[in-house]
C-alpha cells in the first residue's frame, strides 16, 4: 500500500494545526479513521481526501499557508508536502524527514508554541522560501531552505546546521550560541555581533558538510563549495556559532521557486 496520501480538497477555512498528522501515527490506520481525526473544529476528512497506507510516509498533495505545524514534533518517518505550508512547520521536529515543495511560513524548524527548543534532530528541506525565524533555537539536525529566508534565521541556535541558499533577512544568526549557518548569497561584512574568523586549513570540515548537504539538496551542497568567509558569533550570546558565506554568484530569483 505504501504512503498515506492526503489530498487537499479546498483551501482550509482558517489556519489549521496539523501537528496531529504524524507519518508514524497514520501508518496502518484506515482511511475512515484518519478522516475522522479532528483538527480543531474540522475533521481531516472535511479538508482532505484520504488514501490510507501502511508505511510511515505521509504525502500532502496541495498546500496552503493556512496549514500550520506541518510535521511539528515529528519523531520518525517522512512527510512530503507538494505545495506550501504555514507557520511552525517542523517546529520541535526530533527525527525523520520533512520536504516542502513550496514555501514555508515563520518559525520553520523553530520552537513549538510554548516550547523553548527548536528542531532537535531530523532533516527538513524547503524548496521554496521560508518566513521569519527559520531554525529558531534549533538544537540538532539539518534544515535547508533552497530559496530565501526571512529575518532572524538561525536565531538563538544551539547546535545543528541551517543552510539558506538564497537571501536572508535582517540579523541572521542573532543570539546564536553554537551551530552552523550557511548562506548562499554572497556578502562582504559580518552581521552585528559577528567577527571575521578563519576558514579551517585543509577544508576537511567543508568537504564533509558539502557531502552531507549534497545528499539532501545538491543546490545546498554547491553553496558549500563556494564558501569564502567564516564569521563567528553571536558575541551577544555564547559566541561559538559560525556563519559560512559563499563568495559566488547570487542565485537568480526565477530559479528559486518549488
Amino acid at each position: 500500500m505504501g504512503a498515506v496520501v492526503l489530498r487537499l480538497k479546498a483551501p482550509p477555512p482558517w489556519p489549521l494545526d496539523l501537528a496531529a498528522l504524524q507519518p508514524a501515527a497514520l501508518a496502518g490506520k484506515s482511511a475512515d479513521e484518519i478522516a475522522r481525526m479532528t483538527l480543531g473544529r474540522v475533521a481531516v476528512g472535511d479538508v482532505f481526501a484520504v488514501s490510507a497506507g501502511d508505511a510511515a510516509e505521509l504525502v500532502l498533495q496541495g498546500g496552503s499557508p493556512l496549514l500550520d505545524c506541518v510535521g511539528a514534533g515529528m519523531q520518525s518517518g517522512t512527510l512530503l508536502v507538494e505545495g506550501a505550508v504555514g507557520a511552525l512547520a517542523a517546529a520541535g521536529l526530533r527525527g525523520g524527514r520533512l520536504e516542502v515543495r513550496g514555501d514555508a511560513g515563520d518559525h520553520l524548524g523553530g520552537a513549538a508554541p510554548d516550547s523553548r527548543m527548536g528542531m532537535s534532530g531530523g532533516v527538513v528541506l524547503v524548496r521554496g522560501n521560508a518566513g521569519a525565524r527559520a531554525g529558531d533555537r534549533m538544537r540538532r539536525g539539518l534544515l535547508i531552505v533552497e530559496g530565501d529566508a526571512g529575518p532572524e534565521a538561525a536565531g538563538g541556535m544551539i547546535a545543528g546546521t541551517v543552510a539558506v541558499c538564497g537571501a536572508v533577512g535582517a540579523a541572521p544568526g542573532v543570539l546564536m550560541r553554537r551551530g552552523t549557518l550557511l548562506l548562499g548569497t554572497p556578502a562582504v561584512a559580518p552581521p552585528p555581533g559577528f567577527i571575521v574568523g578563519r576558514l579551517a586549513g585543509d577544508g576537511t570540515f567543508l568537504r564533509l558538510l558539502a557531502r552531507a548537504l549534497h545528499a539532501v539538496s545538491p543546490r545546498a551542497g554547491e553553496c558549500v563549495a563556494a564558501v569564502q568567509h567564516r564569521w563567528l558569533g553571536d558575541l551577544a550570546a555564547l559566541g561559538k556559532g559560525e556563519i559560512l558565506v559563499t563568495g559566488g554568484q547570487a542565485i537568480p530569483q526565477h530559479q528559486r521557486s518549488g
Partner: peptide
C-alpha cells in the same frame, strides 16, 4: 533596537566588537 542591544551585550561581556 534588538541589534543595538546585542552589541551592548557583547560590550557588557567585554568582547572585542
Amino acid at each position: 533596537l534588538a541589534v543595538r542591544l546585542g552589541l551592548l551585550r557583547a560590550l557588557a561581556k567585554r568582547r572585542e566588537v
